[in-house]
Every structure is written in C-alpha cells, then in structure tokens.
Design a protein around this nucleic acid. Structure first.
Lengths: 189, 189, 189, 189
DNA sequence: GATTAATCGAGACGGTACGTCGCGTCTTAGT
DNA sequence: ACTAAGACGCGACGTACCGTCTCGATTAATC
C-alpha cells in the first residue's frame, strides 16, 4: 500500500554522514566559520568531496544539521518554580548558548550568513530553534494568565530580541542580575 | 610644531576613493555581499587593486565607510510631537532602514559578517550607528522623566532588539500598527 | 577429464558484451577518444559499471575488441592482377582505413595511446592487424620472386611506414597517383 | 614608427617559465606522459596553477616548448663523408632520438596524443622538427644528383617512415646493420 | 628645472578553495 | 555467479579570488 520500495544501489553510509557532521562541528569551534571549507571538512572527515556535495549543498546546511539537535537540547529546560524564575532561567540558558556553546556559535554563524545569503536565510527561517524554545517558555508563563491578545512572534521577539541584539552586536556577556532584570521587565507588561 | 607637515609624494586621489566606495555600494545592492569581492570592486571602480588594499584592509571596511554616513542620516529624525510619536517614528525609520535602504543592507551584511570574523566585529562595535541613533531618541523621551536608573545599553537593546531580531531572523517587514504597539510597550515600563 | 566443467551461476550476458562494444565504437566516432570514458561507455550501453570492469581492464581493451575484426576485414583484399596492382590496391585500402574508417580511427587512437602507456603498447604489439595484412600482400608479391634475403618486419615497415608516418604526423590524405608511385618504389628494390 | 609599446603591468617571469618547462620535462621522464598533470607540473615548478594556464593551454603545449629545441639539436648533424654515411648517421641519430632521448620521448608522446586530440595534431603539424631535420639531410644527398622530380614530403616519409613506424608500433630498437641497410635502400631509387 | 617620493592603473605572481568529473571499488537488491 | 544501480574514497580538472609584487606613468613638494 503506502510502502516505499527501497532505493536501488549502495545505500548511503551512516559513517560518512556522521564523520562529516563531526568534522564540521570541530572545525567551526577550532578554526571558525570562515576557515571552515567544504574541502577541509571532507579531508578531516576522511571522506570524498563528492560525498559531501552529494548530501549537502553548502557548509551552512551541514552546520545546521550538525547543531540543530544540540541547540534544542540546550534551550529546553524543566519548568521553574514561578514565572519569573522560569523566564530568568531560560534567558540564562540562552545567554550561555549564544556566548559559550558550540551549537550557539553555529547558530550565530548561520544567522550571520543568512544576512547575505538568501538560501541560508531560508534554512534559518525553517529551523527556528530559538523561536521554538522561547515559545515553550512563554506558553508556560502565559498559562498563568498573561499575554492574552498578543501574537506569538511578537512576544518571542520581546523576550529574546534584546538579549540577542546585545550579543550579536557587541559580544556582550550578561550577568545574572541583568538577566533577571530582563525577565522582570518582560513579565511586567 | 604641532602642525603636521604635508606628506611627500603624490597625494591620495579623491577620485579613486569615491570610485571605490560607490563601486562597493553598487555591487552590494546589485549582486550581494558574497559576490562583492576586492577584485571586483577594483575592476568596477577602474582602480588598481593595490590602491584598494592601500587604503582599506577588507571589503567590510569599505562597506562601513561607504554606508556609515547614510545610516546616520537615515536614522536621525526631528523630534516628534510626543514621546510615543517620537519613538514610533524612530522604529518606523529603523524598519525602513533595515528592510529597504542600501545602507541598511550594508549594516545587516556587516553585522552578519561580524558573527564569524573578529575584525569585522570590532569595526561594528566601534561605529555603532544604530545604538547612537537610538540613544538620541531615548534621551529625548527620558527628558520627560522616565528611565532614571537604567543603563543606556540596556535601554537601547529593549528598544531596537525586538525589531532587529525579527528582521534578522526572518526577513520580517513590520506594519505601522505593530511598530506603534512596540513603541507603547517600550514607554510603559 | 580434459573437459572444462560449466562455470556455476549466471552465465555472461552476450547482450551486455555487445552493448559495451557498440557503445565504445559509437562514442569514439562521435566524441573522440579522450571523451570516451569507462563511465560514459557503461551509461550509454545501459550496463552497470562493474560489468565493464569485470570483462575489460581499460577503454583500450574495449576498443581493440570492438575494432580488430573490422580492421582485418577492411585490410584483407583479393589478389590483384599483377604485383603492382596488388600492392597499390593494398595501399589504397590502408589509406582509406587510416583516414576514413571507424576501425582505422580506433587503430590510430590505440597506436597513439601506446606511446605513453605500456599496457596499451603490449596490446597493440600483440594484435598486429596492420602487420598481418601487409605480410599477406608481401608474400603474394614475393612469390613472384623478389625479397629473397629480407626479414618480414623490415619489408612491412618499408611498405606501410611511409604512408602511416605521413598520416599520423600530418593527417595526410594521399591521392591515387601518390599511392601507385609508392607501390612502384616498393617493388623496385 | 614600427615600435611596439611595452605592455602594461608586471612583466612575465622568465624564472616561472623555465621552472615549468623543466618540471614538465622531468616529470615526463620520471613518471610518464599520463602521470604528468597540469597540477603536478605547477606544484613541482613551485608555481601557481594559474600561471601555467595563463601561458599554456595544455600539457602538450608545454612539452612541445620544452623539447622542440632539444629535438632540433639532437637531429642536426654535421655532413658525413659520403651520402650513404650521411644518411646512415642521420638514421642512427633518429633511432637514438626516438628510443633513448628525453626529447624523443616527448616527440612520441605528442605524436601519440595527436592521434586523438585535434589541437595537439595542429601543434605537431606546426613544429615539424623531424621533417625539418630529414629535409636537411635529403638536400645534402640530393645535391649529389638524385631525387630530381620528387616532392619533399614524399622523400621525408620514405626516409623516416619505416624507422618511425617500427619504433612506434613495437618499441623496436634497430641495430647499426639494419640502419645502414635502410640507408642504402633509400639511396638506391 | 631637476630631483624625490608616494601615488596611480595594470597585470603577473604563488597560493588555495571552488564545484565537477572520472577513476576503480564497494555494497545493495534482483535475475 | 552475474546483472543494474549507485554510493564510496580519491584526485585532477579549469576557474576565481586572495593579497603581494613589479612595471611605467603621474603628480606634488623640495631642492
């Protein structure tokens, strides 16, 4: 019935796939986004170049696949004691993610690349990890009663926009005090 | 004594300088940041490559010099009738800047590049056109009495962060209604 | 005892063999030797690549098998009225073979490749179609009395060398007059 | 008046030109024609790849430039005592050239490549070193009275064709006796 | 006016990544 | 055992841009 017949020929190598993802991740951390080339990834992963191009069309795609799962994990938190603690913990996790985590480094690199590459922009818009995570926290706070008439996207932007903007534009690394001030301000609306 | 003696040799050509800046601006708009190469800029400006490298060390520097003045002009507004109108007008100008202006395109490209290039990050931090413009507007509103104990940077981020985040991460183009809602929310704190 | 037991498993596909030979021949004529790749042959013959590699180790081998029979046929002539006519007819056939026939194109390509590939050189030395054909004609003329003390190879070279050299080194296409002059010179020795 | 103005920009580097020619020559001798790649030549010559492509469009062109002068030198002989000695010495030089000299290796590789590459065929036809050398010897013998009504090309082919054919098609290495027999046969016509 | 010195356009230089192509091998399922 | 299909590691292809380096020609200020 709905069965999909198996594709012909040699099946894709899972080993090669993982080797590429890990190589990309490592190179981003060790050498940075600009020095991370398709050729370099292939060589470090001990994989043919064609194998990389067969499955990914750019280093951005590789990076997204390599880091999306990590990003989700790092930004998914257990509910906090009260809304303020919950929001504050999320902002703290977000700050750590953006300034210290490997996946966050990938996120910033991708968001950066998206500003001058339409294809990357679509990729970023598609896998909106940061927005998804923020929505979860906002809903948890909203269940307590707030934010009746507001649109999700606007709330997400209110919550993460200030923090993200400061990190992106200045390499800012916020203190706990600043984060809880942000959380309080977000809830008092 | 304190006078700087005129340098020897042939003086720098203003024609060449302007030709390079215009070529960079045009190429950014027509072909995008990635396709805008040092070689291409030199050729389009009908200028030797060494001449470009002599005065700028990267395409980011050229772009900054080419667009900073425009950016300041586009984000400098006459005072509005009341604080809400003033803030709202600023957000509108900022939105137009980011989504439609050439200088805004350059700003986004530079902010993007800054995420994976430390030198560009410093350039962007140095010439903080967006922050400067926001501070002016915030001070105008603050003169009326608000924001006593808060740090400038935090206020700037509260004001522009949500808008910038939405534009950067999704190509969002806000409506007037959304902008004035943003302005009201910013003032009610 | 002396009987060879039938090999196990699926027998070799004659369809596949012929498809490969025809594909190679066609590609040589249509696209030339350089553009005739193992991959291309397999695809045009609608045959797996492994099937090609299983039975032939290089495109030279395929070409030899594809053209050797044709070459022999084109260079085997009925005896002429007299030695001069016989030799002249052979030279004419050889000229046509080298400059116009598909098999001759293959012969030239193989002889060319043999100059910088030892394996092809052995193949060419082994299946010496051109020498075999020349020897037949020389023996027919020799039966009438000439060439007592001379070695075969030397005579073959005297007969075909001048013609082959001119074709190989300049794409020369001889006239009937030139060919019969050659034949006369060969016999007068 | 007839003066040609000097070209603009940095002039071509003679060092780079010679490094490429020597690298090509060495690689041909050490590794053979097939293993001699444009990439390999550039690397061995310690020269950028673009520099090779800027001045030569194929390895055949490089090889021709690298070996043509040597070929002429090796095939240019002082007049012999009598026509037979002269011709015989030439055939001996030709044989050594084809079977043992580096330039001869290049000649055979080029003649081979010419059979399946039209562009190389033109190059070979253009710089007809072998024919030129043969013509000199033939004229010297002809001055003594022979070959009145015959065309140059035909005589060249009669002289060198048999030898070249045997070397090309079988890797033949002739003895002195065979060479002087060839010389005698050529003169008796 | 001649000299000096830094600029200018032009373009070759040694490098290196690009994305593609063919190599010969391998691993599937199917005949 | 053989078939077609197609992924695999490998490495050369020819191109583009990098940033540097020579060229001859200009353009002022200094001698």
């Amino acid at each position: 019935m709905g069965e999909t017949s198996k594709p012909l020929g040699r099946p894709r190598s899972e080993d090669a796939r993982l080797a590429v993802l890990h190589a990309a991740d490592d190179m981003l951390v060790e050498q940075g986004y600009a020095a991370m080339t398709m050729k370099g990834i292939a060589e470090r992963a001990k994989v043919g170049r064609q194998t990389v191009y067969r499955w990914w069309s750019s280093k951005a795609e590789i990076l997204l696949e390599a880091s999306a799962a990590d990003a989700v994990r790092e930004l998914t938190l257990p509910p906090g004691a009260d809304p303020e603690a919950d929001i504050s913990a999320f902002l703290s996790a977000l700050s750590t993610f953006l300034t210290r985590s490997d996946a966050g480094l990938a996120y910033r690199a991708l968001l950066g690349e998206a500003q001058h590459d339409g294809k990357v922009a679509e990729l970023v818009r598609g896998g909106d990890v940061l927005g998804e995570a923020a929505r979860v926290v906002i809903r948890r706070a909203g269940a307590a009663g707030a934010f009746e008439g507001e649109r999700d996207d606007a709330l997400v932007a209110e919550l993460v926009g200030p923090l993200v903007f400061r990190v992106l534009s200045g390499g800012w690394d916020p203190t706990e005090g600043e984060l809880s001030a942000m959380a309080r301000r977000f809830l008092r609306r």
